[in-house]
């Protein structure tokens, strides 16, 4: 507790993490060691366990085996949640509240009520002009942006983003990544689950999961050369056990 909490070497740590839902082993013994100030990409086919892994790391789901640590503290830990930002895969905002009210609400729950912080994230997601609009009346991509803003408003040290840029237009997506970079440079650790390959290429390191297991990790370049291809999408398919046309390969993929 004492020395480890003061200056934890790792921002996020998973040791043999497991989660079983009845018959389904959604997370099957995952080890992670994420260093502060870096951006990690979490890749894998649908149902491979990315969301479940993030929920285990945030303490929203209870592990059936192994353990998760955030900034040296074992999860689930309620006080630690103030240091964490979690953007769920489905945007969790209140449709009957305005953009500003949603942000104020989440900021207060995190113990922050600095109006300047709210205006900063509003500028970032380009919703400053929509502060009074009910979330219900936003476009799909705008709701996504609001959801991201709600995740960032308390300036967390560790960020878990579950497909943050789905439905966000390319221009804004580039801005988001510029901002993520800025946050990482300031010491924030970010884990991004994504299916977008050019986004994956912006990460410092990638973790590829399949059937609840990590089957590949490293930089984008490393994953490409391991898979013997020069294209990350092809590497994704090969690691997923598919041929370049998306048909199953018999051998599966090497770890």
């Amino acid at each position: 507790m004492s020395a480890a909490m003061a200056a934890p070497a790792l921002a996020v740590e998973a040791i043999g993490l497991q989660k079983r839902f009845g018959e389904i082993q959604a997370v099957d013994g995952i080890d992670l060691a994420l260093a502060p100030g870096r951006i990690y990409g979490l890749l894998g086919p649908n149902g491979s366990g990315k969301t479940t892994l993030i929920r285990l790391l945030t303490g929203l789901a209870r592990a059936t085996g192994g353990e998760a640590r955030i900034l040296g503290t074992k999860m689930p830990s309620r006080p630690m949640l103030a240091q964490i930002g979690y953007m769920p895969q489905a945007e969790a905002i209140y449709p009957d509240l305005s953009v500003g009210e949603n942000l104020t609400f989440f900021a207060r729950l995190e113990g922050k009520s600095d109006p300047a912080a709210i205006d900063r994230v509003l500028d970032l997601v380009e919703l400053a002009g929509r502060k009074g609009t009910p979330a219900l009346e936003l476009s799909g991509g705008m709701r996504r942006r609001l959801s991201l803003a709600c995740t960032l408003v308390h300036e967390p040290k560790v960020l878990f983003l579950d497909e943050p840029t789905v439905g966000v237009d390319p221009a804004l997506r580039v801005q988001f990544w510029t901002h993520f970079r800025r946050l990482a440079a300031a010491g924030t650790t970010i884990l991004v689950a994504s299916h977008v390959m050019d986004e994956a290429d912006r990460c410092d390191e990638l973790v590829f999961v399949r059937n609840g297991k990590v089957i590949g990790r490293g930089t984008g370049a490393e994953l490409r050369s391991n898979a013997g291809t020069d294209n990350l999408e092809a590497a994704f398919l090969i690691l997923s056990g598919l041929d370049p046309e998306g048909r199953p390969l018999d051998g599966g993929a090497a770890a």
Partner: peptide, 14 residues
């Protein structure tokens, strides 16, 4: 069902 409860529980609220 809207996921806001899970989102709430990802904050330090009890």
């Amino acid at each position: 069902i809207g996921g806001t409860l899970e989102r709430l529980l990802a904050t330090p609220v009890t």
